[in-house]
């Protein structure tokens, strides 16, 4: 990817008219990078019993038997769908591996009366495509803070494409009110430095952050993960820790290791 194209995308992320802004300064050379940030989120206690969902009146939902995905814990205790994002000093001006800067389209589909994926990460200006693979009507009700909120009907096989132009401070909730047990989250950021923990609890933020001070936020299903011990200190009320990232090759991760969460955190849910 050309330097030109990279800077266009970065400028778009900053909300600056992309076509003329600061190409020269950008080409002068990128600031030094840190490697990726990795870790694994683990529930430090017995795995909770998955709750049963009431699939409602729709035949296709009763048949699909959607399960409660609000607390997905693997056999080894890994916690899925924790969202981790970086913030702090001017991340948006940072270059990264070119593949991170390619804008893409993100599909959020309704399948088996569940949203897939549970968490969508995108960068400001990227497209969110809403689809419905079920034989029943869904609606998609998204409450944003910086982007316009919407609540639209999505018939079987329907497709709606939206562009989300503003970065959000945290993941926005998405609901289907015809099937209120359905839930998804969408996080829009200005930069690509965000990740979702996978089924085994692992996460990786891509290489390319500036070396030096940054802040990481840990969040799960509408709540900041507060009080989680990490090698860089305990997360604060808003799920944050400060990190000092060393200069590193893209192949050398900054490892946070296993981050253990007290199961009492989820007790009252």
């Amino acid at each position: 990817m050309s330097v030109l194209k990279k800077s266009l995308l970065i400028m778009a992320g900053l909300g600056i008219p992309a076509f003329f802004a600061g190409l020269a300064t950008f080409a002068e050379g990128a600031p030094p990078h840190a490697g990726p940030i990795t870790g694994r989120i683990v529930l430090a206690g017995p795995r909770p019993e998955p709750r049963e969902l009431d699939p409602g009146r729709d035949r296709c939902c009763q048949e699909a038997l959607p399960s409660d995905e609000s607390l997905l814990v693997s056999d080894e205790g890994g916690l899925a769908n924790v969202v981790i994002w970086a913030s702090g000093p001017p991340i948006a001006t940072v270059t990264g591996p070119p593949n991170l800067l390619e804008p893409s389209v993100h599909e959020l589909t309704n399948k088996g009366c569940a949203f897939q994926p549970r968490v969508t990460l995108l960068r400001a200006g990227e497209r969110l495509v809403l689809t419905n693979a079920d034989p029943t009507t869904h609606n998609l009700n998204a409450t944003f803070r910086k982007n316009p909120s919407f609540n639209v009907v999505l018939a079987p096989q329907a497709r709606r494409e939206l562009s989300l132009d503003a970065a959000e401070p945290k993941p926005a909730p998405v609901a289907c009110n015809i099937h209120p047990f359905m839930r998804a989250w969408v996080l829009v950021r200005d930069d690509p430095y965000a990740a979702v923990s996978d089924a085994s609890g692992h996460f990786e933020l891509p290489a390319g952050l500036p070396a030096g001070q940054i802040r990481l936020t840990f969040w799960h299903e509408g709540r900041y993960l507060a009080g989680v011990p990490t090698p860089a200190g305990v997360t604060d009320r808003r799920g944050r820790i400060g990190l000092t990232l060393p200069l590193a090759e893209a192949s050398t991760p900054y490892e946070l290791g296993e981050l253990r969460i007290d199961p009492r955190w989820f007790a009252a849910q």
Partner: peptide, 26 residues
């Protein structure tokens, strides 16, 4: 299935018995 009206407002708009099941609570 183009609108889903009846899923919230019942057949012929007669309404659903509200909150009988957890899935109706919104």
């Amino acid at each position: 299935e183009l609108t889903g009206c009846a899923k919230c407002h019942g057949t012929n708009g007669a309404g659903l018995t509200p909150n009988v099941t957890a899935s109706d609570r919104d």
